[in-house]
């Protein structure tokens, strides 16, 4: 566990590897620190700091690579065990694993028997490792397959409004659509920490 936490920390500190992992560009805490150190008043101190920074960054990079190698080795040997993922679906996040049932509330076009791929994966994990997206994992890294198994209506909900002493009373009944989805499988498709793959089709999210 401590090793994991350390690995995560080093990933968080390492911009290039993080970009490899997630392909997303975000300002990191490292950048402002460097800028601060390159102020003219602190030339010598900055040089010293840069040197130590370089050494430590190399160390961190090595640590990151070790973590990636371990994860990849586990995936290659198929010893990762059961995977879980957090997916974003219709404005809600679900923590899912293979065989789960989730429900989407409200109107949603897919119909029964449709097999879909949930692409907005925010996080995927196994017993020993966790892949965290910022905010979502790169396309094609994790493949989450699902089947629509039921489209139905909820029970009848009563909307009752009354204003006292105003001769106002309304009663409405409504049933909203519900869609039940079965998660079929969650798989890690690519090597973790590998180079960014060029994806031809643009993501719309």
């Amino acid at each position: 566990m401590a090793f994991l936490a350390k690995g995560l920390l080093s990933v968080a500190r390492q911009p290039c590897l993080v970009n490899n992992l997630t392909h997303t560009f975000r300002a990191l805490s490292l950048a402002p620190r460097l800028q601060q150190q390159q102020k003219p008043t602190l030339v010598n101190a900055a040089v010293v700091a840069n040197k130590s920074e370089k050494v430590s960054s190399e160390l961190e990079q090595k640590e990151c690579q070790d973590v990636f190698d371990k994860v990849n080795q586990q995936l290659d040997e198929r010893k990762e065990g059961r995977l879980f993922a957090i997916v974003h679906l219709c404005g809600k996040q679900f923590k899912i694993t293979a065989g789960d049932i989730i429900l989407v509330e409200g109107y949603w076009p897919p119909t029964i028997g449709d097999e879909i791929r949930l692409e907005k994966v925010l996080l995927a994990g196994a017993k020993d490792f966790t892949l965290i997206g910022r905010p979502i994992l790169p396309a094609g890294l994790v493949n989450v397959k699902a089947t629509i198994i039921e489209k139905t209506l909820t029970h009848t909900k009563t909307h009752f409004k009354k204003k006292r002493r105003k001769q106002y009373m309304r009663i409405n009944f409504q049933r909203s659509p519900n869609t039940m989805i079965r998660i079929n499988s969650i798989e890690v498709e690519q090597n973790v920490g590998g180079p960014a793959q060029v994806i031809s089709e643009p993501r719309i999210f």
Binding site: G99, T154, H155
Partner: peptide, 19 residues
């Protein structure tokens, strides 16, 4: 599209898992 007569069941969770 429905799995059975579902009109009279209030769902307490929108999620089911065995694990």
């Amino acid at each position: 599209t429905q799995n059975g007569s579902s009109s009279s069941l209030r769902l307490r969770k929108m999620w089911h898992t065995d694990v």
